[in-house]
Amino acid sequence: MQSKVTSNRLAAILSDGFLALYFIFALFPILWMLLVSLKSGEQLFTTQFIFTPTLENYQAILFGDPRAAAGVVARQEFPKYFMNSLIVSSGAVIVSLLVGVPAAYALARYKFKGKEDLAFTFLSFRFAPELVVIIPLSVIYRQLGLYDTYWGIIWVYQLVTLPLLIWVLRSYFEDISPDIEQAAMIDGYPWWRIFWLILLPLVRPGLAAAALLAFVFAWNNFIFPLVLGGSNVQTVTVSALGYISSAQAFFNRMAAASVLASIPQIILALSIQRYLIRGLSFGAVKG
């Protein structure tokens, strides 16, 4: 008995230790990014952890580089790119919600021909590497006049955001007994009010989690805005490239931009954390 207790405690210490190690391993890049963003150009390639921090990188990307010389790219347009990212990512998630919630409901509730094929088609959007479709897409986009427009990017982001939302929500809707809807029908409610009053609150954890993940995927997407967006809708991910020029690589500024760019995701993740674990472990497993 005694030995069992000790061995349990040993296991607990080991697993805690392992988790701590993993924690450090997983978060180290973020710490490094933060450190680099506070370094000046001279300290950039040192591995020192103790140095005099400077905010000049942030100043440079937000307000312009006061020492910008000819041939060095001045990157003060970061706020604009940040807004672009915000617009296309939120826009993509909102469009996905408007389209995906009814689609997930239909896939969960109704029997129709080719239902599983359709559901699989949505999922298959996530299989194909983006590079495979990017060339034909860019040709089409130029012909349709969608190149370098917000709508164009929001549209192509549906490939990223929609499948996730549909599949997570579908399993949520499947978990809700149709009896509940029928009970409400007998109670005399039109379908849309049943949906609003009863169903939507039930799928909210899944909705929140899937929408957050969709937002993160959209925010981090690189290849679509790189090829399909021009100077008008450049996003933070694409703009990060601009810190590397033929003359000089401003890794510290790139790091500062990355730190700022990750803020919305971190805020979002923390604010809906309580839904996140339940939301994804609950519905998704059963799907």
Binding site: Q182, A183, I186, I198, L202
Partner: peptide, 19 residues
């Protein structure tokens, strides 16, 4: 259904969970 003035007690109860 709502015009017939009938009531049904479901086998699964079908209560509205959010309410």
């Amino acid at each position: 259904p709502n015009q017939r003035n009938v009531a049904l007690a479901f086998e699964t109860y079908a209560l509205y969970p959010p309410l």
